[in-house]
């Protein structure tokens, strides 16, 4: 545990002592701010129409929070490769991996520390959106439980893609390749079920199951389904397991 903590702090510090953390936060703040504005603008104009026609008041959760969360889950696909790219690639390039691998530290401690620091940074980036969401609570009365479930979903989805990114980072010493490879896998896992719209074969089922964004949809609606949690958690374990295997092979091949 002590080793994980020592390594975790070092990783987190190196995120924040370079510009990468701030750049990603700024990027997310701008993009999320834009989507937030767009969603509230639509909500207000539709709301006015509905009021004039004497309809029911519109649900903030359904009209603002849900589309926003879906947007964030896709923005995540772009941010995550940039979070994980340096984790192992940088250590391999500068040779510091030799220090870590000759220290009395187990492989899983190193992997957990790196993955947890990536998750922490991702959570910090997501936390910026809380500033925007506060406005919803100031000017309206959205239900906070579905929002929490939504953010839990974002963290689970993020954790799963971050684990895959960590794995890709062990494969190369070039950060550009790490970012490109992770991004390609994220894209594939996003669009993989687009071809299965009218298909009900077993293959289509498998592809649908693998789509990370499809599993996120229930979370966006505020529905916590064990099936989706199990999917994300098992993907996290799978990604970290691949990372451990890759580190082992690093020893044998290097």
């Amino acid at each position: 545990m002590k080793n994980i903590w020592v390594l975790y702090r070092k990783e987190l510090k190196s995120y924040f002592s370079s510009w990468i953390a701030y750049l990603l936060m700024a990027f997310f703040a701008v993009v999320f701010g834009y989507f937030f504005y767009a969603a509230t603008a639509i909500f207000v104009s539709r709301g006015m129409q509905a009021m004039m026609m004497g309809g029911m008041p519109m649900d903030m959760n359904e009209w603002i929070v849900r589309p926003l969360l879906m947007n964030v889950s896709v923005i995540g696909l772009f941010i995550i490769p940039m979070i994980t790219m340096r984790l192992f690639a940088e250590e391999k390039r500068t040779g510091t991996i030799e220090l870590l691998m000759t220290s009395p530290v187990r492989d899983y401690e190193l992997i957990m520390a790196k993955w947890l620091s990536a998750v922490t940074l991702y959570a910090a980036i997501l936390a910026i959106s809380a500033v925007n969401l506060t406005y919803l609570f100031v000017y309206g009365e959205p239900d906070w439980k579905p929002i929490l479930v939504g953010y839990l979903g974002l963290l689970l989805q993020g954790g799963c893609l971050l684990a895959i990114g960590t794995f890709v980072s062990t494969l190369t010493r070039n950060q550009i390749i790490a970012v490109g490879g992770t991004f390609a896998i994220c894209m594939v896992l996003w669009v993989i079920d687009w071809v299965t719209a009218y298909d009900s074969s077993t293959w289509a089922e498998v592809l649908r199951y693998l789509s990370v964004v499809t599993h996120f949809e229930p979370f966006a609606k505020g529905v916590l389904d064990t099936k989706d949690v199990v999917f994300y958690v098992s993907m996290i374990f799978f990604g970290l397991f691949l990372t451990a295997r890759s580190m082992e092979s690093l020893r044998w091949r290097a």
Partner: peptide
């Protein structure tokens, strides 16, 4: 090559 972290 000394295993150093330049940002520390």
């Amino acid at each position: 090559i000394p295993p150093l972290y330049p940002e520390m």
